[in-house]
Structure formats: C-alpha cells, structure tokens
Design a protein around this nucleic acid. Structure first.
Lengths: 190, 190
DNA sequence: TTTTATTGATTGATCAGTCAATCAAAAATA
DNA sequence: TATTTTTGATTGACTGATCAATCAATAAAA
C-alpha cells in the first residue's frame, strides 16, 4: 500500500496546491483529495514539509523526464535548443494550476532551504541545457549571455502567465523565445 | 497620529515580508517592527488583508513615481525605453527583500482578487511604457511582440534573482535587456 | 497470532480579531 | 489661571478558530 498511498498523496498535494494557488493548504485538504484521513498522510510522510518536498521533487522529475525525451529526439544543437523551449511550454507545464504550484514553491523557497535547493536545481538545469548547445554554436561568453537571457524570458513568460492579465498563449510564448534565440544567433552568422 | 502610524505599519510590513520572504507573517511581527501593539494595527487597518493591500499599493506607488521621473528626463523614444529598463532594475527594486516581497505578492495574487488587481496594473503599465515608445520606432505588431518579450525578460530576471542561484547583478541584467532591445531594433534598421 | 493499514479523538500552538480599560492631550468651562 | 470634560491613541487580556502532529484503538490481512 505504501507506494500507492505516497503517490496518491503527492498527486493530491499538487492538485490542491494548484487549485488553491498557495502552499497554505492543510493536510486535511490534501488527504481529503487523496481520499484518506489526515492521520495517514502524517503516517507516511512524517510532516507536512516532507510531503511538500516530495511534491516538488515529483514536479521536477516529470520535467526532467520530458526534457530528456525531447533532447533525445533532436539531432542538431539548434534543434535541441528548440526542444528545451518546447518542453518548457509543454501544455502540462503551462496549465494554470501547474504554474500556480511553481509560483507557490518559488515563494516557499525564500524560507525553506529544502525547497530552494530543488528550484536552484531546476534553474541550473534549464540554463545548462541551453548553454551546452549554445556553446557549440557561439563563443563561450556570448553563449552564457544568451542562455541567461533565454532562461529569464522563459521564466518571465511563466510568471506573466500566472496573472492571466496578458493571456499570451503557448504558441506565442514559444515563438517569442525562439525569435530571441534566432535573432541572437543571426548576429553571429548562424 | 493616524497618517504617521499607517505609514510606519506599511513600511514595517514591507520590511517584515521581505525579511521573512512570505506573506505568512503575523500582525504581531509587523506591529513589533513598527513599535506598536498588534491591536493598534488592527485599529488602523481593520484587517490583515487590508494592511497587505495598502502595502503593495505603496510598493507600486514608489515604482510609478520613479518611472515617471525617469521618463521625464529622457528625450527620445529609445532613451525612454532605456529609462524604463533602468528603473525596473533600480537598486531599491532589485534588493533581495524587495524581490522577496514582490514574489510573495505574486503568489498571493493567485487567491486574492485585490492583490491580483494591483499586479495586473503593474504588468500592464510596464508593457504599455515599453509599447508606447516601441510603436514610434516600429510597426505595431513588431512593437507588441518586442514589448512582450522585454517585459517577460525583466520579470524573469527578477524571479531568477530571487533564488540567488545565478547571482546575475544589476548591471548584467540591464545589459541583457538592453541587448535584447538593441538586437531586435537593429532588425528593423534602427 | 502477528503485522500492517487506517482512523477518530485529542492536544498544543498559533493567530486574527475584539473589547474594555487606560492614558494623555486638547477643549471647554468656571 | 485652574478645573473639568471630551476625544483620540493605545494597549493587555481574551476568544474562537484553525491546524499540524500524536496516539491509542480498530480492522484487515498474512
């Protein structure tokens, strides 16, 4: 039962956090969503913080596995750059509840060292996936600059999406980031 | 006394939220920072939510007044674009505590309609300040695209700063955004 | 029987919000 | 001027609600 319950609770947590748009959800909310008692959630995770950590870990694992798959399918550095962008704006990732969850974790990272660690891993991974492929095409310093810029643009499009004020869609977000890359690469004759 | 206390409490709230990195601060924390009793904070603001709303309003007012001043000093559209960028990364705005506070408000906006309204105003204002000046230089559709891209990059540089993982400084952030603009404008012979 | 899964009931802590009581300064009155 | 009244500022003590966490008890399975 243990693995079944753990997964159910992590999925429930993600769902509840996304709906509620905040980590200020109760163990009861999560347990109810998973169809078990609050006491059971404590039994398997020990504490709310631990459940939250597992939850973000799962979000990250999903993103990683999508990225690995997308990178494997791409043949050239330029295609791999596009793959990284595409994965970032994949429908699951760009869903309002997922964005709300990410945002909540970003806020939490200001206080929880454990949460921050995971987000730093995400930020580094995104940057490094971009950087590795840019370095094939450009001088190192330019590659680093552009990786930073592209990563920032991706994250920025996310956060702006969270407000739903400028309802810029998935396609437009991808196009904007691709355009940034293309224009920058063209400056180097690529 | 009222205006004095209100300002002291709003400033204290900003400070405490920034330090704590979250809106999950107590009225007691805020009141202590302001040197008054929790009861007094309630007396003047009625509720915690109201105090928080006033706090974000003050953050926004500061940003607006800085922007207006910077725009007034700039003579050309291109100079005004630079001014908008410079204000966004002004030292006060880019201080870790300020960023933490902004982030906390973004998360809160997922639940509080009042908070969301203010952030939407911020997002719109940033976009519109960029857009108005871009439209002088470029066709409308290109201007809109670039305004969106620049706004996203600015917000993204913020959020990445909040993790303090890639400690990209103020100067580098400005340079990155300027470079985006310059490169894009060059595509149109500007 | 022993082990595992599960829960209801409870505890202790934390907080927003309330309220009646104090205190000080200003205004009115003598 | 001296005295009383009024008003606004301020707080300590309290309440009710919420919630994470615990634990002893039960049910089910092995």
């Amino acid at each position: 039962m243990e693995p079944v319950r753990r997964k159910a609770l992590v999925d429930a947590a993600l769902r509840v956090i996304g709906d509620h748009g905040s980590l200020a959800v109760t163990m009861s909310d999560i347990a109810r969503q998973a169809g078990v008692s609050p006491a059971l959630a404590h039994h398997y995770f020990g504490s709310k913080e631990q459940l939250l950590i597992e939850t973000i870990r799962s979000l990250l694992r999903q993103l990683r596995s999508d990225t690995v798959a997308a990178l494997k399918a791409a043949r050239t550095p330029r295609a791999r750059l596009s793959a990284v962008i595409r994965v970032s704006f994949h429908a699951d990732q760009f869903a309002p509840e997922t964005i709300a969850a990410w945002l909540a974790f970003y806020a939490e990272a200001q206080r929880s060292e454990g949460t921050r660690r995971f987000l730093v891993i995400y930020a580094r991974r995104l940057r490094s996936n971009l950087l590795a492929n840019l370095k094939v095409l450009l001088p190192d310093d330019a590659a680093e600059r552009i990786a930073e810029g592209a990563a920032a643009m991706i994250d920025g499009l996310y956060i702006r999406q969270s407000l739903k004020s400028a309802p810029i869609g998935i396609e437009a977000s991808i196009a904007l980031t691709e355009d940034y890359l293309t224009t920058q690469l063209r400056g180097f004759g690529r």
